[in-house]
Nucleic acid binder design. Structure first.
Length: 571
RNA sequence: CGGCGUGUGGCGCAGCCUGGUAGCGCACUUGCUUCGGGAGCAAGGGGUCGGAGGUUCGAAUCCUCUCACGCCGACCA
């Protein structure tokens, strides 16, 4: 492609709607253009990137035995009413009516449609297993669209749905998808991690999220650098302290804390580590007043808490409820001297193992130090893991210490089991002629989100650094003086033609621009390999090669440049 | 949904407080010069100031309503 025949629209300044580097760069490079909140046009340059991601996803899905189809983006309400999700999905679903006032939605996902296909098409175990996928535009009316294509309302997703005869067969399909996903992200040249994800009501170890590692990620991940453990922070187990609780060594005493209403402030005043303080969180579970105790440096994990018996439906106590129970303002609350018949006390495992700790005194402007279980207050009613892990915690697999990083979720694989097949009567006949619900799995990849995530992970002050696999063009030829020097024009045209016959996606910048403009544009849009052709080096029958990724420059003879580029692209 | 903020040529902004000819940089067009890191000079084109209503002799500017967009939040005392 010649730039004179293409459409480039680069900007020096980013529109101020963008916050994240990737979002700014995508707008500046002219990859996308915003139409409305969460709605983006993929401009010709950006579409080339999107298509390359799609192509890799498609190849790996096909290789894993999945079959591509394409379902309607608009779906009738009846199917969703049948599965019960018409009401459940809520305002995230864009609902529309046709001219007959019949209800439809713009598909936020396709479980219902695919299950309908399966239940009418698949009758026998002999037809299984099957795995269908599509690359489709979805619409989810996000509460707050942001970060450009990373959290858009309309987006491109690859979604696959598998059907197996039983759980064991599903597990095999699942493992194959796990491998396919790893292949996709590896081929795209991304740093990623597969992490165990929350399986919600279905349970089991049947779900993994694939995250591209980036500081701007919306999810916090806990991982162990010395093993392969990785999990969403909400899900990672905080291992119980190995050492037994120490004996009391201090006497209980009041501490004057006139203004210290937080653990951190109290610890600072006393000159002690935050780890010796305990914070109290008051909740209501139905009519039951509940107190949770956490170490000062820990945070409550509501997902873990909700899994404790009787805590499925809890809420935070109001300030009135707090005052009614403690007769004390927030900021000085503690578990000592309270009426334990009226409260359920849940202690985190780390709290249960503490001695000589500091808590609120239940009177304004005072805390108590030197507090000990058994001696100063009865043991907790429940001891459980109710906190988020923090860096430095022991890894649940015992093979090291946890680190926390941030990630952008770009893939999610899930063993649905029979949730939808039972709801929608999606059954097959087994070898004994018995009707069985199909075992389903679903597997998503955020195709358009990947483009944003990849840029978030690979950019510098000049612009985007695309990998060979994702770049809109693999090589750009920048002739210096294309319109003035016959030698330059001849050499550039010859190289351009040769690279094209080699099947390389090459861009020839034949604009009558100054070199600086061409360099800056090509760096901004992230073409990984640049060949500069000018009179000076041509005199020695050489051209200049520059790598966008590391900035290295080499002078290469004209006879070797094609081979050199082929080598770079094969890496 | 709640809080805050922003809407002025394609992009980035000033002007608004204190009402009186709509401005700057980038981009765009033409000419000349320049030509290996976002050129210089000169001459141009392009804006119902988000929309509606109101106050006023006069509104980008003041008032009311509305729409769009953005940021933060929806949690721990």
């Amino acid at each position: 492609m010649r730039t004179s025949q293409f459409f480039l629209s680069t900007l020096k300044e980013a529109p101020n709607e963008a916050e994240l580097p990737s979002h700014k760069l995508m707008l500046r490079a002219g990859l996308i253009k915003k139409l409305g909140s969460g709605l983006y046009t993929w401009m010709p340059l950006g579409l080339r990137v999107l298509r390359r991601v799609e192509a890799i996803v498609r190849e790996e899905m096909n290789k894993a035995g999945a079959l591509e189809l394409l379902m309607p983006a608009v779906q009738p309400a009846e199917l969703w009413q049948e599965s019960g999700r018409w009401a459940v999905f809520g305002p995230q679903m864009l609902k529309i009516k046709d001219r007959h006032e019949r209800d439809f939605c713009f598909g936020p996902t396709h479980e219902e449609v695919i299950t309908d296909i399966a239940r009418t098409e698949i009758k026998s175990y002999k037809q299984l297993p099957l795995n269908f996928y599509q690359i489709q535009t979805k619409f989810r009316d996000e509460i707050r669209p942001r970060f450009g294509v990373m959290r858009a309302r309309e987006f491109v997703m690859k979604d696959a749905y598998s059907f197996d005869v039983d759980a064991a067969a599903l597990a095999k399909t699942y493992a194959r998808m796990y491998q396919a996903y790893s292949n996709v992200f590896t081929r795209l040249g991304l740093q990623f991690r597969a992490v165990a994800a929350d399986t919600g009501a279905i349970g089991g170890d049947g779900s993994h999220e694939f995250h591209v590692l980036a500081d701007a990620g919306e999810d916090a991940l806990a991982y162990c650098p010395t093993s392969d453990f990785a999990a969403n922070v909400e899900l990672a187990e905080a291992v119980a302290p190995a050492a037994p609780r120490g004996e009391p060594t201090e006497a209980m005493r009041d501490i004057d804390t006139p203004k210290q209403t937080t653990c951190a402030a109290v610890a600072e005043l006393m000159g002690i580590p935050l780890q010796r303080t305990i914070k109290l969180i008051a909740l209501m579970a139905g009519e039951q007043f509940v107190i949770c105790l956490l170490r000062g440096d820990h945070n409550l994990n509501e997902i873990k808490l909700a899994k404790i018996d009787g805590m499925a439906d809890f809420r935070f106590a109001t300030e009135e409820e707090l005052r009614a129970f403690f007769n004390c303002p927030p900021g000085f609350l503690g578990p000592v001297g309270i009426d334990r018949t009226r409260v359920r006390l849940i202690a985190d495992r780390s709290v249960a193992a503490m001695n000589d700790f500091v808590v609120g005194a239940n009177k304004p402007k005072f805390h108590i130090a030197g507090v000990n279980w058994g001696r100063d207050l009865p043991e907790a009613d429940v001891v459980a893991d109710i906190r988020n892990v923090i860096p430095g915690d022991v890894s649940p697999d015992g093979k090291g210490v946890l680190e926390i990083c941030r990630g952008i979720e770009v893939g999610h694989i899930f063993q649905l089991r029979t949730k939808y097949s039972e709801a929608l009567n999606c059954n097959y006949l087994d070898g004994e002629g018995q009707l069985q619900p199909m075992e389903m799995g679903c597997y998503g990849i955020g195709v358009s989100r990947i483009v944003g995530a990849a840029i978030e992970q690979n950019f510098d002050d000049k612009g985007i650094k695309f990998s060979n696999a994702m770049a809109p063009f693999s090589v750009v030829i920048v002739p210096v003086g294309y319109q003035r020097s016959e030698a330059v024009k001849t050499a550039a045209d010859a190289l351009y033609a040769e690279l094209q016959t080699q099947g390389i996606d090459v861009l020839l910048d034949d604009r009558n621009e100054r070199p600086g403009v061409m360099f800056a544009d090509m760096e901004l849009i992230g073409i990984p390999h640049r060949v500069t052709i000018g009179d000076k080096s041509l005199a020695e029958e050489k051209v200049e090669y520059v790598s966008r990724r590391d900035g290295n420059t080499e002078l290469i003879s004209q006879t070797n440049i094609v081979a050199t580029l082929l080598g770079k692209l094969a890496q």
